[in-house]
Design a protein around this nucleic acid. Structure first.
Lengths: 209, 209
DNA sequence: AATTTGAGTATACAGGTGTTTACTGAAAAA
DNA sequence: TTTTTCAGTAAACACCTGTATACTCAAATT
């Protein structure tokens, strides 16, 4: 019972501000799970985070500003997850490798509906800035997947005709299936996963020289 | 100079009502080209159609109601266009047949941005009813394409492993590329078309037994 | 110890929102 | 010709929106 001085950490001003900022971000994310980001109001986000509407401006200059920050976070975390899944696995048959990535992806969506809806929901209808940011995220996805595919096929399979096209097609599948996953109950998810796996395998076959 | 009695047709009450209803629908469609349908207000649609907000209720009981009607129209017209394109063509090499459909599709999107944004924009974030209606439309798309694919391959190519999966993958590609087409200038569209064609061909190859 | 800084508050503003109410006036029905 | 119907109006409602202003009061700086 020597040091109990950590139970009420004397938050510095900066720490406190950062804490509030995170609360704003998390609130926006939480609310995004049940409606589109663009239909969120500044006031409800501020109130949800426990501050007044005017206080919001100490952290972001507009909802769009907050949205762009969110977009960064979402894109980054999802890309890291997928990269990690692709890297961490031991050598295994291609279909099983695909299945692993698909599973990680679906789990992510189910556990972070707000994040994913943000990525999908503003693809159309958001502000131009927003769409551009989203487009950039998708570009990253594509490039990372393409380079991983090249790597992978070097080791295991015949070379690809066109890694970029392959990556684009696979990402298209991921997104469409992701949108469906949001609305499904837990027991339908399995068939969705295996469908996605099959379709990705189909793309793989078609992409080989 | 016998019959000039058609220059001021004496609109019956029903005709007049129908005319206003169409104006509401068309206005909603027009406004959907520049923002998402769910961020449209009842008032601006009514005003845009030349009636007061209260008058709106003589035609639809809510914006969601109007939205569902819109969804039907959009889905129907786009599906008809695509079916027609697939049917009308003379026998031709597969790649060219694909190119024809892709061209018709891209043209449609460019000429009817409001329609297409409606289809895409409410996929996430819309009301549950809305999403269900959208899901149904996509199901129609898939089934029609799948049955056309079976037909096509009977004549020209090796049979498909799984026509449904093939159709799903192709539709996923269509939608992702469609979303990109909305934001592009006219001269970038060509490369988008050929990219889509290549990716569809890739799926075809992978789908053959 | 005195001063400055700045996160968050309280309040007010002008304007937009969906919905309800009683109404008008012309077409349709009697 | 009289009566009924009903698309559309006008006005009011309670509420929500983003933003600006002047403020508090504690932490950080001097």
């Amino acid at each position: 019972m020597a040091a109990i001085n950590k139970n009420t950490p004397p938050l510095s001003r900066l720490e406190q501000k950062e804490k509030t900022r995170r609360k704003l971000i998390d609130t926006a994310l939480r609310l995004s799970a049940s409606k589109s980001f663009s239909s969120l109001s500044l006031r409800e986000v501020a109130t949800g985070a426990g501050i007044t509407a005017a206080g919001f401006y100490r952290h972001f200059e507009s909802m769009e500003d907050l949205g762009l920050v969110l977009m960064d976070e979402v894109g980054l975390s999802l890309r890291q997850l997928l990269r990690q899944t692709r890297r961490d696995r031991a050598p295994m048959p291609r279909r099983e490798a695909v299945a692993l990535s698909v599973q990680a992806y679906i789990d992510y969506i189910r556990n972070n509906p707000g994040l994913f809806q943000l990525l999908l929901g503003e693809r159309v209808g958001g502000t131009p800035k927003f769409r551009r940011a989203l487009h950039q995220e998708l570009e990253y996805f594509k490039q990372e997947l393409a380079s991983d595919l090249v790597e992978l096929q070097k080791q295991y399979g015949p070379p690809l005709r066109n890694a970029e096209h392959t990556a684009e097609a696979i990402i298209a599948l991921f997104f469409v299936v992701g949108a469906e996953a949001l609305d499904m109950d837990k027991k339908s998810i399995n068939s969705l996963s295996s469908r996605l796996i099959e379709e990705i395998m189909m793309v793989f076959r078609g992409s080989e020289q």
